[in-house]
Amino acid sequence: MVARHAKPAFTVRRARFIALCLLPGAVFVALFTYYPMIRGAVIAFQRYNLFDLTSTPFVGLENFWSVLAEERFWTALRNTGTWVVVSLFFQFFLGFGLALLLRRQFRGRGLYQAWVFFPWAMSGFLIGLLWRWMFNGQFGVINDLLLKAGIIDERIGFLASPGWAMTSVIVANIWYGVTFFAIMIMAALQSVPPELYEAASVDGASRMRQFWHVTLPHIRPTLALIVLLRIIWILNFPDLIYSMTGGGPAGSTDIITTFLIQQVSGGDYGRAGAVGMLALGLLLAFSIFYLNVTRMERS
């Protein structure tokens, strides 16, 4: 860890130095992130509806109870689970596979990387639109390709049928997210010191064993952290679903964040605040649990 060398004593002057260095970041985060969040959190305990903002009394937990009593909230919660777990699973393993394949130098690797990493350069919103266009039930190219290949007999309204919509948005999300994992895992793989492998080959370990016993343990902390960050991001950034289905049809792709957006557009800021606080609470609880399980707290 950090303290390989003796650290200078903690003095007032040092404290001032530390504070000054952390100040710029802290100011930004406090002013533009925490302050609005706290104000938003307060609204969750008020009757705060656009319909009449002239009276906004405190109503205790009323907004929370009303959200929790709603079946749609629970549907959104279940969908959130599916959305995060399935997306993450494929993003992770495909990304891992890609990173392993790209690990060793080969001719054209640079060029290949430049092209294959391209989804990373696009915004989730654009990717949503692009896939919405490709999944279109009439003019969508995916239907056309599947018809030509003889896999389907008639066009499928991918984003129109509750059975297909979630699969479709997840496919788009996987396409989008594999690159992120590939980049991150490649970086992690490169951090494994070659000496470790040398030691292992002396022992005559097979490639498979090498991977299990040398590579994986070494990059595990990194993997744990990027998986956590990714989970938070997949959950918190609804732009892809928002631009593909808006949560429809019939709420079948509603995740907790699109549900939140709907509350905001319905004008009930109080309830929106309550949904937001519930989402934040769940994420926090999950992260603490996750960090404990992966024992990240040690570092």
Partner: peptide
């Protein structure tokens, strides 16, 4: 921890107050 938690805050609850700010 404070930095990590910022990533978990749903943008949409902060957006209204942030706009006023």
């Amino acid at each position: 921890l404070a930095f990590l938690v910022t990533q978990m805050i749903p943008l949409f609850i902060a957006l209204g107050p942030l706009y006023l700010l």
